[in-house]
Amino acid sequence: MTVFREGGVPLLDWRENLEFDGRGTLWVAHLTKNRVEGYAPDGTLRASVAVPGPGGIRRGPDGMMYVNFGVKPLTRAGGIMRFDPAAERPRAETFVAGIPGVNGLAVDAEGNFYLSRELATGIVRIRPDGTEDEEWTRKADVFGTNGLEVVGDQLYASVITHTASPVVRIPLKDPAHHTTVTELSPNPLKTKVLDDLTFFDGDLVVASFRDGELIRVDPVTGRSCVLVNGLRMPTGVRVARAFGDHDPRREMFVVEASGRILKVTAG
């Protein structure tokens, strides 16, 4: 584990999520500074895009970057903004509004968006045209989701509010038949407080905010092990893709509520 960028004052320098644009830039949602930061592979800050309360950020099939806004507690407004990462001076515009309480974000191959809500039931599905698929949302009736990741025709979600720390699988075509992959906290007094998750080398990698861990989970069997510990309130994890000479087969990047950005090498 190496530090890609140092943090500032923990919680006051909260970096919430991250995504690679496939063009050599790492985009990081800086929650407390209301901006999305673009970093070069050498750690240089390339760009800064104003977004109020940015949270989950993902690259869409169209190459645009999509980021949830209004993630700060007690914020009434919320939704998705987007910007062109190839622009000389990227500027974010509102794509979807009127969805308060959002956090994590995922996008499927067809361009549908999925938004988690920590204090509500139902993962919100937004169609490519920006309209909500209310029936899908109603059927995906999981309470308190945080991290989201699409793998093939399945959506995986970490649940932050349940003391058992479950990871849930939701079929994209049949969301009512969601199932629990695993429960990472058999002891309710030792809940993990799960945050973001990603797909890496055939497994899920889930961040435990409370314990400072990355936990590797087999999505088929539910078996798990601690991949990395010693983190400081990790909030987001993504596999390095098209980012200089960083190897996507072995390297992941992590952001923390401490403000740090880390590179983790597995294997």
Rank of each mutant, 00 (worst) to 15 (best):
V96E: 10
I99T: 08
P100V: 09
N103C: 03
G104N: 10
G104S: 07
G104D: 02
L105R: 06
A106S: 08
V107F: 09
V107I: 11
D108E: 09
A109D: 13
A109F: 00
E110C: 02
N112V: 01
F113Q: 08
F113Y: 06
L119N: 11
G122T: 03
I123Y: 05
V124S: 10
R125V: 00
P128L: 11
P128D: 12
P128M: 12
D129G: 14
G130N: 05
T131W: 06
T131C: 13
D133W: 06
D133A: 02
D133Y: 08
D133C: 00
E134Q: 12
E134H: 12
E135L: 09
W136F: 14
R138K: 13
R138V: 01
A140I: 09
D141T: 07
D141I: 03
D141P: 10
D141S: 15
F143M: 12
F143E: 15
N146F: 01
G147Q: 07
G147S: 10
E149R: 07
E149W: 04
V150E: 04
V151H: 14
G152K: 12
G152N: 13
D153E: 15
Y156W: 11
A157K: 02
A157G: 01
S158P: 05
V159T: 07
I160G: 08
T161R: 15
H162E: 14
H162L: 15
H162K: 13
A164R: 07
P166T: 06
V168Y: 03
V168G: 07
R169L: 12
R169W: 13
P171E: 13
L172A: 05
L172E: 13
H177C: 02
H178M: 04
H178W: 11
T180A: 14
T180R: 11
V181S: 12
V181F: 01
T182R: 03
E183R: 10
E183G: 02
L184C: 12
L184D: 11
P188S: 14
L189G: 14
L189F: 06
L189K: 05
K190W: 05
T191Q: 10
K192E: 04
K192F: 01
K192Q: 00
V193M: 02
L194K: 08
L194G: 01
D195E: 14
F199Y: 13
F199W: 13
D201H: 09
D203N: 12
V205L: 14
V205I: 13
V205P: 05
A207M: 06
S208M: 03
S208G: 11
S208Y: 02
D211V: 05
D211S: 10
G212S: 08
G212I: 07
E213F: 04
L214E: 02
I215N: 00
I215K: 00
